[in-house]
Design a protein around this nucleic acid. Structure first.
Length: 561
RNA sequence: UGGCCCGUAGUGUAACGGUAACACAACUGACUCUGGAUCAGUUAUUCCUGGUUCGAAUCCAGGCGGGCCAGCCA
């Protein structure tokens, strides 16, 4: 509720509160109704969190219900995936896991009622003919020649549709509303279509399946939902939602629509996920570059961060053409991980350093803090030695003015260890720096200078002898454009795919990282947050970069160019 | 030429007739054994034009701009 207090209620909370005080409802009950035909993405997370949040804030109930009315598109695999995703996100549906397909019998009986009332009829028109007679946005449609069949004939035909006497597409049950209605959805919409397709839960029990518009309000009504929250594109469907419920005379929930959003530097549709996966641009639906919940989870994003993000962006009706800045999501990821992720040292692009005055064969362990933001995280020992690795980018032979790090003759601090001074940069035949010869000051053990002298930079490092080899996958934005659709003439969003969205590199890690288990999250000091990937093998961990740390130096560099 | 919905900093939201707020981003600076974190500061005549009012982002009218809708998808 703290969000609500600090910024005022959104229009959904206001609408629900108004319904309560007006007596339209005396309790609150919401639902999240995914179709099990794809994996959830972060856009769905917002929808889940809005409905769950409304229920929670008003002391109400929240259902997870699969809208499985089209067996041609749906699979059990997605049911399982979605349940896992919603649970991971943290929405609580108690024991209220429902399936629309469990209501098919009741829906059928209600359809019969509408037929009896003269509100529905069996239509023999083909899909093409229905489309051709629907009219246009500006002209009315034409009545079906079957519109005025007798109730008896309709009842008989509908029963035979169910019994499987007719082939796919040969007939439909249609609501008898108004072929001249300015809202196309009201021009005798199809309620049932014939589909001789096995359902993933119902098997061959049915060969007629209800359409969304017919089914959805019934599902809400059966479950006692008070507020059926959905996205803006269903606004035009609300009159139909209400019409069916009114004609049936059954309990009538209220549908309210809200704007969904997109994110910069990514795409968010099932169709595009399929294209990216099948085109080999990403490695599956849980690729850490995809905004699927499975991908975000694998990348190391926490459900807390996603929730904080959802609450911060709020809800509105402004149909935004532009997307929410992915930097906001990244902010919440950093905020969470800064508090919770243990610090470790890992060198992603190793440059060898030899401490010339450090005794050959000597080794020692230094004391390091696990998390400066959390004293309870404790401390650990990090081995030091004569030969080390530092980050290649932390050395410049001819540094510009604002570069504080290692350079010939310069002294820097190795975190938790010693001050070292660069004496020489050793190069190979091609002129590449391959090793730094340095000296250290034994008096600075632990990282403090007894004489109080300052160094400008503190570098992370890993001792060579005890280093653990790891694979690091450095992820960046999947697209180079904030709006991937801004593509050159004749090209689509795929032209904006970022060729560097994943860089796989061999890293050197401090020994503690050898014990990392898939899902473990760390901050690699000065480099970013990383999450141990399921691809990890014993002794050879794989780390996914969740997000980099904020990098002031990178900004300075950018400005210089 | 139809119907429905929506226009507030770069972005997302708030202000509910009383003088524009929050977060992120960006930019300054302070501090720091992570160029991290933290702290301080800077960034808007609310799409336009009229009207009502002592007073309008809020109400009204007309423009302009954007979104959705012609699946037997959801």
């Amino acid at each position: 509720m703290s969000e609500l207090e600090s910024r005022g209620a959104d229009f959904l909370h206001e609408a629900v509160a108004a319904d309560l005080s007006a007596g339209r409802f005396d309790r609150v009950h919401t639902r999240f109704p995914p179709e099990p035909n794809a994996y959830l993405h972060i856009g769905h997370a917002k929808a889940v969190w809005i409905s769950y949040g409304i229920a929670r804030d008003f002391g109400g109930l929240f259902n997870l219900r699969f809208d499985d009315t089209n067996p041609a598109a749906e699979e059990q695999e997605f049911v399982d995936g979605i349940i896992a995703d919603v649970r991971w996100l943290g929405a609580d549906w108690g024991d209220r896991l429902f399936f629309a397909s469990d209501y098919f019998e009741q829906m059928y009986e209600w359809a019969v009622q509408l037929v009896r009332q003269g509100d529905a009829y069996v239509c023999d028109l083909s899909a093409e003919q229905v489309s051709a007679t629907r009219g246009t946005l500006t002209t009315p449609g034409a009545a079906s020649p079957f519109r005025n069949r007798s109730v008896e004939e309709n009842l008989d035909l509908f029963a035979r549709m169910r019994a499987g006497e007719f082939p796919d597409g040969s007939r439909t049950l249609r609501a008898k509303i108004d072929m001249a209605h300015p809202n196309l959805n009201m021009r005798d919409p199809v309620m049932y279509r014939i589909l001789h397709v096995a359902h993933h839960r119902q098997g061959d029990k049915w060969c007629i399946y209800p359409m969304y518009d017919w089914a959805h309000g019934l599902e809400d009504s059966i479950e006692g939902v008070t507020h059926s929250l959905c996205s803006l594109e269903y606004e035009n469907h609300r009159p139909l939602y209400d019409w069916f419920l009114d004609r049936l005379g059954i309990y009538h929930p209220r549908q309210i629509e809200f704007a969904r959003y997109s994110l910069t530097y990514t795409v968010m549709s099932k169709r595009r996920f399929v294209q990216l996966v099948e085109g080999g641009h990403v490695n599956g639906y849980d690729d850490p570059r995809l905004p699927t919940l499975a991908g975000l989870r694998r990348r190391g994003v926490t459900p807390q961060a996603i929730r904080a993000f959802c609450e911060r962006i709020g809800v509105g009706k402004a149909d935004t053409n532009v997307a929410v800045d992915v930097a906001l999501l990244e902010h919440f990821i950093r905020e969470e991980l800064n508090r919770t992720a243990p610090r470790r040292m890992a060198v992603l692009d190793p440059l060898r350093v030899v401490i010339e005055n450090y005794p050959e064969g000597q080794a020692e362990e230094l004391d390091a803090v696990n998390n400066p933001e959390d004293a309870a995280a404790g401390r650990r020992k990090v081995p030091f030695g004569r030969t080390l690795y530092i980050e290649r980018e932390d050395f410049m032979e001819d540094p510009p003015k604002k570069f504080f790090r290692m350079a010939p003759g310069r002294e820097v601090r190795l975190r938790y260890a010693y001050f070292i001074t660069c004496r020489e940069a050793v190069k190979d035949a091609a002129g590449n720096v391959v090793e730094l010869r340095c000296t250290y000051d034994p008096a600075t053990r632990g990282g403090d200078a007894p004489d109080g002298r300052k160094v400008k930079a503190t570098l992370h490092w890993v001792a060579a002898d005890s280093a653990v080899d790891a694979e690091a996958r450095l992820y960046g934005h999947l697209f180079t454009q904030a709006d991937p659709d801004e593509a050159p003439e004749g090209k689509d969003y795929r032209a904006n795919l970022n060729p560097d969205s994943m860089k796989v590199i061999a890293a050197k890690c401090e020994p503690a990282l050898a014990a990392a288990a898939p899902g473990d999250r760390f901050q690699f000091e000065r480099m970013g947050y990383f999450c141990c990937d399921p691809d990890s093998a014993a002794g050879r961990p794989v780390f996914n970069r969740t997000v980099t740390l904020k990098d002031t130096w990178a900004k300075v560099q950018k400005q210089g160019k």
